[in-house]
């Protein structure tokens, strides 16, 4: 345990001072890493802890992003306040998806299909909603006067670096606490065998709904961040299936159901993607899809080498906890 604590403290200090030696590009890469770690952590609450496969988490990213952005653009409401209605909206959406799934006993991959369907409905809906720009995109105003207004999530790369780092750490802390809680244990029981869980007094439906609520609320903040970081929203992008897949990749590669899996996965996948982009550019290859092919090959190699996730494999080597999930 001691060794793990030392590693964690050193890593944390390194992340805190690292921006001193980083250029804008590198900062932006790390923002992506932290964002992926955060969203992966949120998804992991549902899949890793409660065993609920969601392939439609872009729903919560998109809803959170559009809600906070619309409140800001139309009513001038700070995202620090707007994040609450954004969260509430995503939790309502989560309850609707979850309730439909659990009421009609839609489980496993069929539940995943349901989550995809909802994300698709939202994508099409927002593509036609003129109040938020419809298919033409929804843009947040960027001006010199508002540049330093941190309470409106306006700031430079450093600001977003530390904000996303803080979010990733907070998500880690929340998941750590959840994993150790009674609810966390009941989730694991539900994930392992729902019928056996019921037999020892666990209200499985309630446990699952709570997992969806927490996951949706956490993911909505990833959406709020997204809106104010990029300052433009396109329904076709933010609700896209590929975004849901990106969210699930980091925890899968890192280790489903582990606390550090989403972080390790994000640390591997985002730089891998960036490296491939740079490499294809440097080699002068501009055939479409080349990057995706190599990214896919990279994924296959990683998953073949560490089928249970990279983090459990590392943890076993180092002899620190979480060797088992």
């Amino acid at each position: 345990m001691k060794k793990a604590e030392v590693v964690a403290i050193v890593a944390l200090l390194a992340l805190l001072v690292a921006p001193l030696a980083m250029d804008r590009y590198l900062l932006s890469v790390f923002v992506l890493v932290f964002w992926a770690a955060y969203a992966g952590q949120a998804w992991n609450v549902m899949m890793g802890f409660a065993g609920l496969l969601s392939l439609g988490h872009s729903l919560y990213v998109g809803l959170g992003a559009y809600a906070a952005a619309a409140l800001f653009v139309h009513f001038g409401i700070s995202p620090l306040l707007g994040l609450f209605p954004a969260m509430a909206l995503c939790m309502i959406a989560g309850v609707v998806v979850g309730w439909l799934g659990f009421r009609f006993r839609i489980e496993g991959v069929y539940f995943a299909l349901l989550t995809i369907a909802f994300a698709e409905v939202a994508r099409i809906g927002f593509d036609h909603l003129t109040w938020t720009g419809a298919a033409g995109g929804f843009f947040l105003p960027v001006s010199r006067e508002t540049a330093g207004q941190w309470w409106n999530l306006r700031g430079g790369p450093l600001f977003f670096y530390y904000l996303s780092l803080g979010m990733a750490l907070a998500a880690l802390g929340i998941c750590w606490a959840l994993r150790r809680s009674r609810l966390g244990h009941q989730w694991l029981a539900t994930r392992e065998d729902a019928e056996a869980a019921r037999a020892i007094g666990i209200n499985v439906t309630r446990a699952r709904i709570v997992a969806v609520l927490i996951s949706a609320a956490m993911t909505s903040l990833a959406g709020v961040f997204y809106a104010f970081y990029y300052n433009n929203l396109f329904a076709a992008q933010i609700f896209d299936m590929s975004r849901s897949i990106d969210i699930v990749l980091a925890p899968i590669v890192g280790g489903i159901g582990t606390l550090f899996g989403p972080i390790i996965g994000a640390l591997i996948l985002i730089p891998l993607g960036e490296l491939l982009t740079e490499a294809t550019r440097a080699l002068g290859i501009n055939a479409p899809g080349v990057k995706a092919i190599f990214y896919g090959l990279g994924l296959m190699v990683i998953i073949a080498l560490a089928p249970g996730g990279v983090w459990p494999a590392i943890a076993r080597r180092l002899g620190i906890g979480e060797g088992r999930r």
Partner: peptide
């Protein structure tokens, strides 16, 4: 089933159902 368990009636399964990964 969970309500019945909470009333004080617990069962085992003929085909055992442990939580395997725990």
């Amino acid at each position: 089933p969970d309500q019945i368990c909470m009333r004080g009636l617990a069962r085992t399964f003929q085909i055992v159902r442990p939580f395997p990964a725990l």
